[in-house]
Structures are given as C-alpha cells and as structure tokens.
C-alpha cells in the first residue's frame, strides 16, 4: 500500500471500500501491539509526540466460552484505542499485555499526543467491525484479522 509504511507485524489489505488488518505474532499477547499499529496505519502515518501518560485497559469477555471470545476482546480493545485517538488526539506506545485470555484482555501503555507536524492522517475510521474478525493459530504463532469501516 503506497500511502502507509507497513512495519513487521501487520499488513493491510483491501476490503471492498474499506481496509482490513492482518496482524502476526508469536503469541496471542504479542498480537496486541501490531494490531494497534495496524489500526493506526488505516488512519495514515501517525507520529507519536510527547506528554506521555500511563493508561490501562481492562476488557472483560461477555461470553468467555464463545470460541471467538479472544477476537471479540481484541476488537473491543481496538475500539478503545480508536476512541482515544478520535476524542483526545492521542496514540498508544510502549504497550505491555498483562493478560490476554478468553476471560480478559488487560493492556498497559503510554498515551502520547500525536505530532501533527510530522503526521499525515488520511482517513477517518468509523469503527472496528465484527466482520471476518478472528484470531487463529498459525505455524509461527498467531494471526488476528479485523476490518475497519472507513
């Protein structure tokens, strides 16, 4: 995709008028950081600024026995990330996953302002959708897929 630089850990793909993100990692917990970066890449090239503040997200599964519980937790977390981005113009760095189980996703991170002078926000993401949402085991670890509505 010419408009964004894609670091290791995720790739963007076309999905009709929207965009999809496929994140890869050695473990389920490892998916959180590339999925977050993938969401930011859907918006454009966002460069972190200063004013770091600690933040914490704890998402509880509504239906832990559901086979898609982990994917739903990841989606709910990404919806939080989107909310912080849109309403506070801040992004997350230094992510640390405390727990990622079918019961709970617990993430600690630093929230920083966006460096508007070096960033290039191209698209408004309306939502992280439930369509094609998945976390699957792969030969090398895990992969998460989600689609964002532009």
């Amino acid at each position: 995709m010419p408009s964004v630089s894609v670091p290791t850990g995720f790739e963007l793909f076309d999905h009709t008028a929207d965009l999809g993100v496929r994140a890869h990692a050695a473990s389920r917990s490892g998916l959180v950081a590339p999925a977050t970066a993938g969401l930011y890449a859907c918006v454009g090239q966002l460069v972190p600024g200063g004013d770091a503040q600690p933040v914490e997200f704890v998402l509880e599964a509504a239906a832990p026995s559901n086979p898609g519980a982990c994917a739903n937790l990841l989606r709910d977390y990404l919806a939080e990330v989107l909310h912080v981005l849109e309403t506070r113009r801040r992004m997350l760095i230094d992510l640390r996953v405390v727990e990622f189980s079918p019961l709970r996703l617990h993430v600690r991170a630093q929230s920083v302002s966006i460096d508007d002078t070096r960033s290039d926000a191209q698209r408004e993401v309306k939502a992280v959708t439930y369509h094609a949402l998945s976390i699957v085991d792969t030969r090398d670890g895990c992969a998460a897929t989600f689609i964002v509505d532009i």
Partner: peptide
C-alpha cells in the same frame, strides 16, 4: 458505489 478499492485507486493514480 465504488468499483475500485482504496488501494487500487491509489495504485491507479501512480
């Protein structure tokens, strides 16, 4: 309705 994806449209603009 779109006939090109967003990335296809960007590619077509090269």
């Amino acid at each position: 309705g779109r006939r090109m994806s967003r990335t296809a449209a960007i590619r077509a603009s090269a």
